[in-house]
């Protein structure tokens, strides 16, 4: 079993999460859960990433980069994703049916991102965690409890628009 975990912070940086996922206790937990590869999109948090000391070079491969035009390929190969709370990332990951832990950056001024993560957690599509709880969340993470995200309804918006424009279909 060689599983892959992908961590993404989006267009800004998120030092705390990068420091945490590259810390020794976190890497140990990943190895014990059968992860053989950690891919990190660290955005502006490069400094937090390169501080890492990987004492487990033979046990877990760690790859990091700042940005890519599309994260889709890294999302697709992952068995578990830890993401910031941006709605674009959340939607993209859920639509690939990937198990997802969302960690909100509580330092951001506006907390509407947390509201979104909590709502989607209450519906069972993802798990929300604070930074301080992330290790515990991962320990008790139950993949089987997650509910697949529904396919979007393509006709709703078209119907409203057709009605507004007086189109008879």
């Amino acid at each position: 079993m060689s599983r892959i975990i992908f961590v993404t912070v989006g267009s800004t940086g998120f030092d705390q999460i990068i420091s945490l996922v590259t810390s020794t206790p976190f890497l140990q937990l990943l190895i014990s859960q059968g992860f053989a590869k950690l891919v990190v999109q660290y955005g502006k948090s490069r400094n937090s990433f390169i501080k890492m000391q990987n004492n487990f070079i033979n046990e877990i491969e760690i790859i990091g980069y700042d940005y890519k035009p599309s994260l889709r390929e890294d999302m697709k190969i992952a068995d578990l994703i830890i993401s910031h709370a941006g709605s674009g990332s959340i939607l993209e990951i859920l639509r690939l049916y990937k198990p997802l832990i969302v960690v909100a950056n509580e330092n951001l001024m506006d907390n509407h991102q947390i509201e979104l993560a909590i709502e989607l957690q209450s519906k069972g599509y993802l798990v929300y965690s604070s930074i301080s709880n992330l290790l515990e969340t991962l320990k008790s993470f139950n993949y089987k409890n997650l509910i697949p995200f529904p396919q979007p309804n393509d006709t709703l918006f078209a119907n409203i628009l057709n009605e507004e424009m007086n189109v008879d279909i």
């Binding site: 989006g10 267009s11 941006g86 709605s87 674009g88 990332s89 939607l91 993209e92 979007p152 393509d154 006709t155 709703l156 918006f157 078209a158 628009l161």
Partner: peptide, 16 residues
């Protein structure tokens, strides 16, 4: 950008 663009293209998906 990013999330906005993705959501908008999803909206446009069903249009004739």
């Amino acid at each position: 950008s990013g999330g906005h663009t993705m959501e908008m293209l999803q909206l446009a998906e069903g249009l004739d």
